[in-house]
Simulated assay, not measured.
Amino acid sequence: MTTSNVNQREDTTAGESRGNRRRTNEEQLDAVFEVLADARRRRIIRILRTQDGDTVPVPALAQTLATREPTDPEPDQLVISLRHVHLPKLDATGVIEYTAERSQVRYCGPSLVERLLDQV
Rank of each mutant, 00 (worst) to 15 (best):
R42I: 07
A37K: 02
L90N: 08
I47A: 13
Q63W: 00
F33Y: 14
V35S: 03
Q77W: 07
Q63N: 11
V79N: 09
G19H: 06
P75N: 00
Y98L: 05
T64C: 06
I96F: 09
P70V: 00
T71M: 02
P59M: 00
L48A: 13
R21P: 00
P88D: 03
R41I: 05
I44K: 04
Q51C: 07
T71N: 10
P75Q: 00
P88R: 03
A100D: 03
A66L: 02
R49E: 15
D54S: 15
I80F: 12
R41V: 08
D72C: 05
I47K: 06
R21D: 13
D38C: 06
A39Q: 07
L36A: 09
A100N: 04
D76F: 14
L61R: 06
I45Q: 08
V58F: 02
A39P: 15
H84R: 09
L48T: 12
V32S: 03
I45C: 12
D30N: 10
D91Q: 06
L36D: 08
D54I: 02
L65E: 11
P88Q: 04
E97F: 04
G53C: 06
I47D: 11
A62M: 05
Q51N: 08
D76L: 03
I80L: 05
V35G: 04
V95T: 10
P73V: 00
D38Y: 01
K89I: 02
I80K: 08
G94H: 07
I44F: 07
L29Q: 11
S81A: 13
I96V: 15
R49T: 11
V85T: 14
P73A: 01
D52C: 04
L48F: 13
D54W: 02
H86D: 12
G53V: 05
F33S: 02
I47P: 14
D91S: 09
V58D: 08
